[in-house]
């Protein structure tokens, strides 16, 4: 017997009629399934840390299936940031974007000190931009429910209706750290001049002041050597937590509408973006960034020094 699974439907930010239709269809299809509860919340990224939606999400002990207009990697680390953690649930879709091993707990909780996720429960993240009809999602979720085994009978009574949590949210913009990639090199703290990043008691980097982030600025993500910084709302999939090539989802007309034809490297673009946002904030531009030197090559494992030789000899000695 397992705890019942909760399907979380994170609504889109836009008035896109096709998207709203898909959300409604999904809620309708899934709410009738007695094996799961359906919870509808505003857009996951915009939720208030101590609002009703995140509070409700933190209280859910069982498996989660999260449907959002986000790349699965972005969804996972937005939840992690809010102390909502679990094993990576594999769906066979977009799995290549997720960490190979169960996510390393980030340790440093950001918006919340509570860590409700040191459990064996699973979190499955599905990207609603992948299919335009509800059926593929419903099939995937039914498979997840079937694999999870029978739910505890005491909890199995379904109301047949989705639970909708409303809270007023405004569009936010802040980085989300993928701790399965972050090596704590602190490049981001050095680079960001708006004070977004900080460290916890264990000197582990965290997004300390998310609302100090400059809307639209993804520059720190470009300087991160591990590509561990996700801006879920950025138009470039590589920055938004996806692995898809630009254009896989929609046409990008930026070049037609006036983007500079830059063939610049990531650090040049990052410096230009940072300067633009410094100017907007009324500060002096900081100028170019010197890329960090490549990490020193690891010492070859087979290279022995005198001490190694001595140890080898010790073993060979009959003491």
């Amino acid at each position: 017997m397992t705890q019942r699974c909760t399907v979380v439907l994170s609504r889109g930010q836009t008035v896109h009629p096709d998207r709203q239709e898909l959300e409604q269809q999904l809620a309708l299809h899934l709410a009738g399934d007695p094996r799961c509860e359906v919870l509808v919340v505003p857009h996951l990224y915009d939720l208030n840390a101590h609002g009703p939606s995140l509070t409700a999400l933190r209280e859910i002990p069982g498996d989660l299936v999260v449907l959002a207009w986000l790349y699965p990697r972005a969804t996972r680390w937005i939840l992690d940031r809010q102390g909502i953690r679990g094993q990576v649930g594999r769906t066979g879709i977009d799995d290549e974007d997720l960490p190979a091993e169960p996510a390393r707990p980030s340790g440093a909780a950001n918006d919340t000190p509570a860590d409700s996720g040191a459990s064996s429960r699973r979190i499955y993240c599905l990207d609603l931009r992948r299919d335009q009809t509800p059926e593929p999602y419903v099939d995937t979720i039914r498979q997840i429910l079937a694999d999870a085994g029978p739910a505890a009978s005491a909890e199995a009574a379904s109301t047949g209706e989705a639970r909708t949590l409303d809270e007023s949210v405004k569009r936010r913009w802040y980085p989300v750290i993928d701790y399965s990639r972050c090596t704590n090199c602190l490049e981001c703290i050095d680079f960001c001049l708006f004070g977004v990043y900080g460290v916890d008691e264990a000197d582990k980097v965290l997004v300390e002041l998310p609302d100090h982030c400059r809307k639209g600025c993804p520059a720190c993500s470009r300087v991160c050597p591990e590509h561990a910084i996700v801006f879920p709302q950025h138009k470039s999939p590589a920055i938004a937590g996806g692995m898809l090539e630009p254009g896989d989802l929609k046409l990008d007309l930026s070049n037609l509408f006036g983007a500079a034809d830059d063939l610049l490297g990531a650090h040049d673009v990052a410096a230009r973006e940072r300067d633009e946002h410094l100017l907007i904030a009324g500060q002096r531009p900081a100028g170019p960034v010197v890329p960090p030197p490549p990490p020193p090559p690891a010492r070859p494992a087979d290279k022995k020094d005198e001490l190694d030789d001595l140890i080898d000899q010790l073993e060979a000695m009959d003491l």
């Binding site: 836009t14 896109h16 639209g216 138009k235 929609k250 046409l251 990008d252 007309l253 930026s254 037609l256 509408f257 006036g258 983007a259 500079a260 633009e276 100017l279 907007i280």
Partner: peptide, 22 residues
């Protein structure tokens, strides 16, 4: 806000496309 020519100022999403705006 003071703008430089061709500075990125926003983005747009439509049925067919998305684009930064300058």
């Amino acid at each position: 806000v003071e703008l430089q020519p061709r500075q990125e100022i926003g983005s747009i999403e439509s049925k067919k496309a998305e684009s930064a705006l300058f």
